[in-house]
Amino acid sequence: MRNISTAGHSRRTYGDLVSELDFLPEPVGDSPVLETFRLLAIQVERMLPQLERRSILILSARPGEGRSLVASGLARALTALVAPVVLIDADTIGSGGARNGAMPTWPVDGALSHAVNAVVSEPHPRLAPISKFQVAAGQRSQLQTVDDITRALDGAAANGAVAVIDTPACLSSSLALSLVGRVGGVIYVARKRVEDASTHREIRGQLDLLGAKVLGVVFNEG
């Protein structure tokens, strides 16, 4: 877990902060991180009507940029605006949440899994405000993984949910790029670090070639 010590506060993580997002009855506004995700959720909520699909793909160039944090934070914040929301954890390589606390340790939603398995013929009437779908890790081909995610997306769409997908880093896996044609929009995450700008340009070029709808950049200063 990534413990952060701040003056006057107990040791909390990004995951702790994200977990608080939709459980507070009133917006507090004293946490810049929470306000950031609320702002991001508002922006995405405004963009959703313009998208062909109600799904957002979170990607970045390298591991450790904060994709899982952004995905979970966005999913949490969107819950207050456009519930239900389905968070699809497709980052079978990074799994940032488990390592650094960026991803809350939510249980996998059984109802969503049931809905996915039942395909779209029988939409689940009572999907929780936020659900998590964990892509199975292990010896599975990328095509099988893409198929799993596609079915999860279909299930979310059948239930009127907005899907937020956490993916592996683009320079580590082509999974994210193979999914850009199946989602409504793409959010690119970059961290404050020494980085060559040509990397961003190359990834943007790939996204344009694949016909992705790029919504914008989330810059992680953490």
């Binding site: 909390r12 991180v33 950031t36 922006q43 952004v70 790029v214 950049v217 810059f219 200063e221 953490g222």
Partner: peptide, 12 residues
Amino acid sequence: FGAPVLVRIPSL
């Protein structure tokens, strides 16, 4: 990247 910066996540 050729896209607007939506938000900046501040450092804890």
